[in-house]
């Protein structure tokens, strides 16, 4: 559900949460769709042998999900200028990932309102990702 393209959003506006059921299928299909063939993202036995409890999300997918959390809200006309993330705990298969965003900065730009959204993605172990997305709203 995207926002109505009216007034610029206020700083502090909370974005709708993006809840994801991180199944084994989700971890594997996103790893392959991002062309990441590291065994820890599709082979449970290999992941366990390397000290992980299960296969886990790859960073390219996490980057994409942080972007999606903001564009789901900002709508198809928004132009993403930057995605910056820091990884925390791994998000293992079988967990739930909940991404939430909050408008941190708003400034008028030549192409529209430039908005910086702070995003946090949490799973059962804690913060999986913290980051910011810079987006221009039409």
């Amino acid at each position: 559900m995207s926002r109505a393209p009216a007034a610029p959003p206020a700083v502090g506006t909370e974005l709708p949460a993006l809840r994801l059921d991180v199944t084994t299928t989700f971890v594997v299909s996103t790893a392959l769709a991002t062309r990441d063939f590291q065994d820890v993202h599709h082979d449970r036995a290999a992941a366990v042998a390397r000290g992980s409890q299960d296969i886990f999300l790859n960073i390219l997918t996490t980057t994409g999900l942080v972007q999606r959390c903001v564009t789901d809200w900002a709508g198809p006309g928004a132009v993403v200028r930057a995605v910056s993330i820091r990884l925390g705990v791994p998000c293992y298969a079988g967990d739930e990932l909940v991404l939430g965003g909050r408008v941190a900065e708003v400034a008028a730009g030549p192409d529209g309102d430039e908005v910086v959204v702070g995003v946090v993605g949490r799973c059962s172990l804690g913060d999986h990702v913290t980051g910011t997305v810079r987006v221009v709203l039409p």
């Binding site: 769709a33 390219l60 980057t63 995605v83």
Partner: peptide, 20 residues
């Protein structure tokens, strides 16, 4: 795979897909 229904795609590439 990511469940991203943004209608801007696939006419344009998702920006965060650049590394792919």
């Amino acid at each position: 795979a990511l469940g991203d229904a943004n209608p801007a795609y696939p006419g344009q590439a998702p920006p965060a897909m650049v590394q792919v």
